[in-house]
């Protein structure tokens, strides 16, 4: 049955979650169908690598755990800190890798660049060549980020693409598109929403969405 996201999970009415993932979404079709050629290849490569002592099953499990633990909440914490700490914001805009490390986030060897949204400028990130994404701060990319449509069109008609995400910007706003590479990745520092004066960094982080850090959305408004 199709999953209804509007229903209450603490209500008394039992309903069927069979076939749904722990997060309540449908599994990918390849999760519960017959073993595919590429799944066979994954198992084979993994077993060969383990048998030859190149990696251990524990390392694989730990890497998946690390990956699962990364989410847009990491990026949101960085953004909220920048909104509340001008000195940190200056460091973030000067060297986002180093500023993120300062907050305890492992960025690896890649160069991370934060681009700031203002009243005049809106930034959006894409990787036209492949799917480079600030995964250390945002987790794995959404499917659309890797799609032909997003990769092809964002550099050519960003306003139209943003409109498909429900984001229509004033004509007076400059839209800057940043094309990532394997070694150089971007994250958008969205503008702090109005009506958030006096809010703590923790409360502000709740307003920072994944899409607002890609540039395909804006942060939530308080109380929305």
């Amino acid at each position: 049955m199709p999953h209804d996201h509007d229903h209450s999970h603490d209500g008394a009415v039992p309903h069927d979650h069979t076939g749904m993932s722990p997060s309540g979404h449908p599994y990918r079709p390849d999760q519960d169908t017959a073993l595919s050629y590429w799944q066979v290849m994954e198992i084979a490569v993994r077993e060969l690598a383990v048998e030859r002592g190149l990696i251990t099953p524990a390392e694989i499990a730990a890497q998946i755990e690390t990956m699962d633990a990364r989410s847009p909440a990491n990026g949101a914490a960085v953004v909220a800190r920048a909104w509340t700490d001008p000195a940190f914001k200056a460091r973030l805009l000067a060297d986002a890798s180093e500023a993120s490390r300062e907050m305890g986030f492992d960025i690896g060897p890649l160069r991370l660049i934060a681009v700031e949204n203002t009243d005049e400028v809106h930034n959006v990130i894409v990787c036209t060549l492949c799917s480079c994404y600030p995964r250390n701060l945002l987790g794995l990319p959404p499917d659309w980020y890797k799609s032909r449509a997003y990769r092809s069109r964002t550099v050519k008609e960003p306003r139209r693409v943003l409109a498909e995400f429900g984001l229509t910007l004033p004509e007076s706003t400059t839209v800057r598109v940043h094309d990532s590479t394997a070694d150089m990745r971007y994250i958008v520092l969205p503008a702090r929403p109005e009506g958030t004066e006096g809010m703590t960094a923790e409360a502000l982080a709740e307003l920072v969405t994944r899409d607002s850090m890609i540039g395909t959305g804006l942060p939530r408004s308080p109380g929305a």
Binding site: H25, V126, A149, S152, V155, E164
Partner: peptide, 16 residues
């Protein structure tokens, strides 16, 4: 090297 090519609407559905 897809940047700038014509393509359809962005499919916003996502999966685990």
């Amino acid at each position: 090297d897809m940047g700038g090519e014509a393509a359809g609407a962005v499919d916003l559905s996502t999966h685990d």
